[in-house]
Amino acid sequence: MELLEALCRLPAPSGSEAPLTAFLLEYIEQHAPGWRVQPRVLAGEEFQDCIILCFGQPRTAVFAHIDSIGFTVRYGRQLVRIGGPDAEPGYRLVGQDSQGAIECTLTVDEQTGALGYEFTRDIERGTPLTFACDFRQTDTTVQSCYLDNRLGVWTALRLCETLEHGLVVFSCYEEHGGGTVKFLAKHIYETYGVHQALVCDITWVTEGVHAGQGCAISLRDSLIPRRSYVERIRRIARESGIAHQLEVEGSGGSDGKELQHGAQPWDWCFVGAPEDNVHTPDELVHKADIDSMLRLYQVLMREL
């Protein structure tokens, strides 16, 4: 879990992914020599802060977004949300501006619900703030801010160790409207002819998806993936014997939304572990579901 903790401790809210991109590129450079297949690494200004890793002769792409929710300092001591973070008075927030490191406290106006902060000085407007990381684990669970989606990033990196054929794509901006997957999908489709994807992200514990019973294969959220593709994934999952659950929701979205709205004929399916305490500093995931998620991705990327 050392890698997962390092990922969770790196602030990278939507729009400020560059530090995490640099971390990932350094990690890939250091560890790729020990992977089964050496990937071609695509990164740089053409891809903004995104990264594409191409292994062998790819048939399927795995999309894992690297950004998180957070807050932006507005005027005075006001804050505005990045994405959809939970906001409870007393949450510890951290950041950095030209005057130095910041560790402040979230405030919520009881009458208006307006968000603000308490700190020893005014923070420069436009400064991004994120939840302070308190990474904890037991024999059965992991708890931290930003398991959504640092756990998806962790899964994708671990997948790289044994992947022979496939694309691993680290995208940005997912938590705040998206925007990068469309140009990534276009490049991948035109360069490699790949048009099927797995969305490596974290979903919710609900009345129908339970912690500790395996990662979730989503049959739908606010959008509906093509049924024939999802049925292929369900068949492979059943035959693998790996614990998994089926999710059906009427709201929410992921990188799959941009794939479906794009101009290319992409098939996609969300496959990810469920978490409790969504979008809070205390997101909670069962280790059995983490294990299930990684093993299922390894099988799916061989069989699809």
Rank of each mutant, 00 (worst) to 15 (best):
231 E>H: 13
110 E>W: 01
255 D>S: 14
117 Y>V: 14
113 G>M: 00
144 S>D: 06
291 D>K: 15
258 E>I: 13
239 E>W: 02
301 M>N: 09
179 G>S: 11
178 G>Q: 02
14 S>W: 03
148 D>C: 10
241 G>H: 05
149 N>Y: 12
30 Q>M: 06
287 K>L: 15
62 V>T: 02
131 F>R: 01
174 E>A: 13
256 G>C: 08
145 C>A: 15
153 V>Q: 04
72 T>E: 09
250 G>K: 08
181 V>A: 01
67 D>R: 12
86 D>I: 14
208 G>T: 15
184 L>N: 01
187 H>Q: 08
304 L>M: 15
217 I>F: 04
54 C>R: 06
7 L>V: 05
34 G>W: 04
238 R>V: 10
227 R>N: 12
56 G>S: 09
199 V>E: 00
30 Q>H: 13
93 L>A: 03
162 T>E: 12
41 V>L: 10
51 I>N: 02
59 R>H: 14
287 K>H: 07
249 E>Y: 05
43 A>D: 10
11 P>N: 06
213 Q>L: 05
80 V>F: 07
67 D>G: 08
217 I>Y: 02
108 V>A: 07
73 V>S: 03
150 R>W: 03
236 I>N: 05
134 D>E: 15
284 L>Q: 06
53 L>N: 01
298 Q>P: 09
84 G>E: 14
248 V>Y: 07
281 P>H: 12
101 A>C: 08
299 V>F: 06
181 V>M: 02
79 L>Y: 03
30 Q>Y: 04
267 D>N: 15
142 V>N: 06
279 H>I: 14
182 K>R: 14
292 S>G: 13
111 Q>G: 14
93 L>Q: 03
148 D>G: 00
54 C>K: 10
221 D>R: 01
82 I>C: 09
74 R>G: 12
68 S>D: 06
189 Y>L: 02
173 Y>S: 11
92 R>T: 11
52 I>V: 15
205 V>M: 01
46 E>Y: 11
223 L>S: 08
280 T>F: 12
179 G>K: 07
150 R>A: 05
36 R>H: 10
128 P>R: 10
25 L>P: 10
155 T>H: 08
28 I>L: 03
12 A>L: 04
153 V>P: 02
247 E>N: 09
126 G>F: 13
253 G>V: 03
183 F>S: 00
34 G>E: 13
304 L>F: 09
85 P>D: 06
90 G>L: 08
300 L>K: 08
286 H>I: 00
46 E>P: 02
179 G>M: 11
41 V>K: 00
154 W>C: 03
42 L>C: 05
93 L>H: 00
236 I>E: 08
144 S>F: 12
134 D>S: 11
37 V>R: 11
105 T>E: 10
218 S>G: 08
178 G>L: 07
146 Y>I: 00
135 F>G: 03
56 G>V: 02
179 G>A: 11
10 L>M: 14
225 P>R: 00
91 Y>H: 03
128 P>M: 12
147 L>V: 07
73 V>F: 06
287 K>N: 11
167 L>V: 04
274 P>I: 11
2 E>W: 02
240 S>R: 02
3 L>C: 09
124 E>V: 12
79 L>G: 01
21 T>A: 05
33 P>G: 10
246 L>P: 10
125 R>M: 14
159 L>F: 07
81 R>P: 12
257 K>S: 15
84 G>R: 11
